[in-house]
Design a protein around this nucleic acid. Structure first.
Length: 830
RNA sequence: GCGGACGUGGCGGAAUCGGUAGACGCUGCCGACUUAAAAUCGGCUUCCAUCGGAGUACGGGUUCGAGUCCCGUCGUCCGCACCA
């Protein structure tokens, strides 16, 4: 028996699949369609284990779907714009484009070595003009439809690097690279009107049945719809202040009005009064981290202004500037009802404001509210004029209709979701196709001038945006009036690139972003697989972009991803030397640091990360064990949504199984005779593994395949054994495709196993004629009986009572009651 | 603080409907083959123990029967966060 040579077989079959274009999807196929997609990678340099796990899962599903006769679209590409390329440019002096393209070449070769069934004919990279040019066209379509606008917005500005920083690049208020104190700067930036779609994005979640509940909930909270009343208070200085509340029913319990420190009213007062200015400045101090906010004291500053109650003009509420009111949410101003809101109560107690009960818990109707715990539960309105006696919901409706009738307020829905700011003051991104003209304002670049290509001759040696500094690139004539004008030098957020790549995969004509008819044949993506870290932003933006395209009549698809699966991470033990250095796995052997011979502290199993040195590079592992062993390991043991702990022993176990498969299938010979039990097991396994793969429960499929493999090994030669070995080979083919192809040939088959059909199940083989029945006495298992399936209740009961073990357990007591579940169990209660 | 998920052997985990807990894999141990080793094959591997008993984080409950359902407690992880 020859040992299976994985490396040789890997290379051979990969080139065969390539040459035959086995996995290229046919747009004109009459077969049922399956669009299987994993989140495309950022070309950071090398493939990591997380990629391997992600793409292996999608690959098994894609290959399985092909075997059951689907036309499968399973493409791959590169999310190739982004800051790491610019960082590399600054650190190593390489051009971001060269760096990115070299990484793509490396990673593509690495992916190929894993034998993924990908349609490489549709490969795309977002950093190439033949992708981002079409993105510019789509951006202009949205612009024409009024879904793009420009407004002032503040950014984190690094005054040394002269660059805008993302929030995660600001560490303790300083730029991560320069260490300079970061300033807030107002810049005019482009926004997409995602908030116009807030309602449909929220309501659409309900239809996404094949999404994890967790992700739907996260998006729901992120969109954050609140319904309430927006209304105006008249101020004592003749001005007005507009507030939003979700509890308009409690309006008669109001005892103060509070505005944010950057609210226009506060700003106006601060401009005149140094004391106010000092307070406003104080509000802006302090961090915005969770812990800081939680412990931060509620501070208020009494402006001396008063607000007139909209219904009872005799009531005048003091107006405070308060540090807990956010300008970004609602109207930047609130009214405080201390009896029924905890934060308002804390504030009222601190500044000695009245606390008036307006909702009764049923026990207490006294207008004077005592205690330090606000009542937020249900009840009847009290001390509230015409609202008295109503429940909370009725009172809300009554007050909103009165406000609308009298013209001082309106029922409103407020969202937490903000419009999507897409401007980035960066080089390595999609240029925003707009020209700024002094006379005409912002003018879209005419479609026939697209793509607006990034200039290649840029330098990162000097700080600032290279596009802005470039001597000629931005200077152009206004397309509208012809006078000298300048290009927009901001580029698009890379989340825009990933908001439509799945559409471009489905259809990629040269002259437009996609062909509507072809794209609609494939979309939506049937199964999308990726990390949970994209649960909100990427998935929400892609949903928005798709709906926006539908809105402007470009594509009739509401939701881009019908099914979503978020896979767990690949983890590894961590190791520390006795002097506290992190050690990488190869530096450690049997708990000893090989270099020093000293013992090592084994830490917790954690996500693979460079900082903790617990990463395992897939490439040498593939070199050593072959692609199939790595793929098999990725599917084994851990449920795919949970973390997978990488282990040396585990990969060796997988390698052994690949070898064992090879032996089982190649040593198997045609023979005579039946083995009904094995035949039944094989059919059951076909059915169950199919279900497991469809449900992405690969760990269960793996366990079943081990069981079938062991049963075949133990069985005596027979016709059924021969058939079972053949079945086993087909079942493992989506998971370990290289050894499967090799064994397919060795068994004398023509063609590729990749093109073979999934085995059919004979329903007759799924029924058992014998069953094992559990026999319990008082709920405790005492015996098991093997009986014909469908044995009558009376017979079951009699057989159970006749069991020696039951008789012993009864200790002479008479059964009081006997529960019989046919074909399952008998429970004797004594 | 709010919201959510989870808690099963030495480890990863299985048990789809309330019906035989621990499938399958890893580790470990014993044995076969071998001059020897590797590879491979066979057996054992929840705990305590003599019969037998206990056991799915802990404490209660419902039920003939609970890993699974309900209530409470503890713990771990994730998301959001002064949201009006």
């Amino acid at each position: 028996m020859t040992r299976y040579n994985a490396l040789k077989a890997d290379a051979h079959w990969q080139s065969v699949w390539d040459e035959r274009r086995t996995f290229a999807a046919d747009d004109h196929s009459a077969k049922p369609r399956s669009y299987v997609l994993e989140m495309f990678p950022y070309p950071s340099g090398r493939i990591h284990m997380g990629h391997v796990r992600n793409y292996t899962m999608g690959d098994v599903l894609a290959r399985y779907r092909r075997m059951i006769g689907h036309e499968v679209l399973h493409p791959m590409g590169w999310d190739a714009f982004g800051m790491p390329a610019e960082n590399a440019a600054m650190e190593k002096g390489v051009h971001p484009g060269s760096w990115t393209r070299a990484n793509i070449a490396t990673m593509k070769a690495q992916l190929k070595r894993l034998g993924f069934a990908l349609d490489w004919t549709r490969e795309l990279a977002t950093c190439e003009p033949d992708y981002y040019g079409h993105e510019q066209a789509l951006f202009l379509d949205l612009f024409a439809a009024g879904l793009v606008y420009r407004k002032e917005s503040s950014v984190n500005w690094d005054p040394v690097d002269m660059t805008v920083l993302a929030n995660e690049q600001v560490i303790d208020g300083r730029g991560w690279r320069s260490g300079a104190l970061v300033e807030k700067r107002k810049l005019s930036q482009w926004f997409l009107r995602i908030t116009d779609f807030a309602d449909e994005l929220l309501d659409g979640l309900a239809e996404l049945k094949d999404w994890p509940d967790k992700v739907r909930l996260m998006q729901e909270n992120w969109i954050g719809r609140s319904q309430g009343l927006q209304f105006r208070f008249r101020l004592s200085d003749a001005g007005e202040v507009e507030v939003f509340t979700t509890r308009p029913d409690t309006i008669f319990g109001a005892s103060f009005v509070a505005v944010a420190a950057d609210h226009p009213i506060a700003q106006a007062l601060a401009a005149r009064d140094a004391e106010v200015a000092a307070f406003v400045a104080r509000c802006k101090q302090g961090g915005t981290t969770a812990a800081e906010l939680e412990t931060q004291e509620k501070l208020g500053f009494d402006t001396g202004l008063t607000a007139q109650h909209p219904i009872d003009p005799a009531v005048r509420l003091p107006v405070y500037i308060a540090n807990f009111v956010l300008m970004e949410y609602g109207t930047g101003a609130v009214f405080g009802v201390p009896a029924h809101d905890q934060r308002d109560l804390d504030f009222a107690r601190k500044y000695d404001l009245p606390v008036r009960r307006v909702v009764s818990d049923g026990a207490d109707e006294d207008p004077v509210f005592v205690g330090d715990e606000a009542y937020t539960g249900p009840g009847a309105l009290v001390n509230s004029h015409f609202l008295d006696g109503m429940d909370v919901a009725d009172a809300k409706r009554a007050i909103i209709s009165r406000a609308e009738g009298e013209g001082w307020g309106t029922g409103t829905t407020v969202f937490r979701l903000r419009d999507w700011g897409v401007s980035r003051q960066r080089y390595w991104g999609t240029p925003i196709p707009i020209i700024h003209c002094a006379a005409c304002g912002p003018v879209p670049v005419p479609n026939d001038q697209l793509p607006i290509v990034l200039p290649e001759d840029v330098s990162f040696a000097v700080p600032g945006n290279p596009l802005d500094r470039h001597p000629t690139w931005k200077h152009v004539a206004c397309p509208s009036c012809g006078v000298d004008a300048v290009r927009e030098t901001d580029t698009l957020d890379t989340f825009v690139d990933s908001s439509w790549y799945f559409i471009r995969f489905a259809s990629q004509p040269d002259d437009r972003p996609f062909d509507r008819t072809v794209a609609e044949e494939w979309l939506p993506v049937g199964q999308y697989i990726g990390g949970v870290e994209h649960a909100i932003l990427h998935l929400l933006y892609a949903r928005f972009w798709t709906r926006a395209l539908r809105h402007i009549g470009k594509l009739d698809v509401a939701e881009p991803f019908a099914g979503l699966f978020t896979q767990g991470m690949v983890t590894h033990e961590t190791y520390k030397s006795d002097d506290g250095r992190w050690l990488s796995p190869p530096e450690v052997e049997n708990g000893i640091e090989t270099a020093t011979g000293r013992p090592v502290t084994v830490g917790r199993v954690e996500k693979m990360s460079k900082s903790k040195k617990n990463t395992v590079d897939p490439e040498p592992i593939v070199d050593q064990y072959g692609a199939d062993a790595v793929r098999w390991f990725m599917l084994s043991d851990s449920p795919p949504e949970r973390d997978l702990p990488w282990s040396e022993a585990g990969i060796e176990g997988s390698w052994r199984f690949v070898q064992r498969l090879w032996r089982i299938v190649t040593a198997d010979k045609a023979a005579e005779g039946d083995d009904l039990a094995l035949r039944k097991l094989a059919h059951r396994t076909v059915r169950d593994v199919a279900g497991d793969i469809e449900g992405l429960q690969f760990n269960k499929a793996v366990a079943r395949l081990y069981t079938l493999a062991s049963a075949i090994e133990k069985a005596a030669p027979s016709h059924d054994r021969h058939a079972a070995a053949h079945t086993l080979l087909l079942l493992v083919a989506p998971m370990v495709p290289h050894v499967a192809e090799e064994a397919w040939v060795a068994a004398g088959h023509d063609g590729l196993i990749a093109d073979a059909a999934w085995p059919t199940v004979d329903p007759a083989m799924l029924v058992d004629d014998e069953v094992t029945v559990a026999v319990q006495v008082n709920g405790k298992l005492r015996d098991t009986l093997t009986l014909a399936k469908g044995t009558a209740r009376e017979e079951l009961e009699a057989a159970a009572l006749a069991s020696d073990k039951v008789v012993r357990a009864l200790e002479g007591k008479a059964p009081r009651k006997v529960i019989v579940v046919p074909d399952r169990l008998v429970n004797i209660v004594a």
